[in-house]
């Protein structure tokens, strides 16, 4: 296989005295969809935040395209093609939909392309076009998730990290969102690292998966094997 586009090597991190990650190692290869599943508080979000440099890695390395990135400032990473849609979507509530999208392209200088990309976002999510002058905070949960994804796409990511995109959404919206994720991966070739509580959903979308428990990877396998694994079925698929 080729080199991983994103790799974590024995990453430790946390919040002051709380050790949230205790040696996470994982690899994501170009073009893959990889899932991270685990219970509440296992450290899934912390893993993504550590990759993005928001939470500092205390030990170990985060390597993106062969470069150690955990020493860089977090705001540098989207310019390299690494972007996250965080848990809870974090739309800028008092900026309009259009402004939220525009800020996704904050570092870009290609004004004409940016305008085209905003139009593309409206084609991908027509509801955002209808709501473009509305404040982000007034959107429904599903619309906010769409906006969060569209905003992240404005950074032109090579690797997209998604934290619980299905959280709190109706099944039909979840289906839409996952169709889009699939499209982003297939059509644009964007690599995706997907965190989900909904293990079933995540493993159907992904080719491989990692299981996180209390800050450590306890299992790593193909999605099909994980879906068939009795332990996983018992712990995460509610059987």
């Amino acid at each position: 296989m080729t080199d991983p586009i994103l790799e974590l090597k024995d990453v430790h991190s946390g919040y002051g005295s709380i050790k949230a990650l205790k040696g996470i190692s994982l690899r994501v290869y170009p073009g893959e969809v990889v899932a991270i599943i685990g219970a509440n508080g296992a450290g899934k979000s912390t893993t993504l935040m550590t990759i993005c440099g928001i939470v500092k890695a205390e030990r170990g390395q985060v390597i993106y395209k062969g470069q150690v990135i955990n020493t860089l400032l977090p705001e540098k990473l989207p310019t390299l093609g690494l972007c996250q849609v965080p848990e809870g979507r974090r739309i800028f509530p008092r900026l309009t939909v259009m402004e939220n999208l525009r800020l996704g392209a904050f570092y870009r200088k290609d004004t004409d392309e940016i305008l085209k990309d905003i139009q593309k976002a409206y084609e991908m999510f027509p509801i955002l076009g209808e709501r473009k002058n509305q404040e982000g905070g007034t959107l429904s949960g599903g619309e906010q998730q769409m906006l969060a994804i569209a905003r992240a796409l404005m950074t032109k990511p090579k690797v997209l990290l998604l934290d619980e995109p299905s959280l709190g959404l109706a099944p039909i919206i979840v289906q839409q969102i996952f169709n889009i994720i699939d499209r982003i991966n297939k059509e644009d070739g964007t690599t995706i690292l997907l965190v989900e509580q909904n293990a079933n959903l995540a493993l159907q979308a992904a080719t491989r998966g990692y299981v996180v428990e209390t800050g450590q990877i306890t299992l790593e396998d193909d999605s099909t094997s994980l879906l068939a694994n009795p332990k996983i079925r018992a712990a995460y698929l509610g059987e």
Partner: peptide, 24 residues
């Protein structure tokens, strides 16, 4: 302006701002 947008974004959510390349 874009800078003004970034300023309002920084006021609203610094972590998210960093995730879209805005250095607070």
């Amino acid at each position: 302006t874009k800078m003004g947008m970034a300023m309002r974004a920084t006021a609203q959510d610094k972590t998210m701002s960093a995730l879209v390349a805005i250095g607070s």
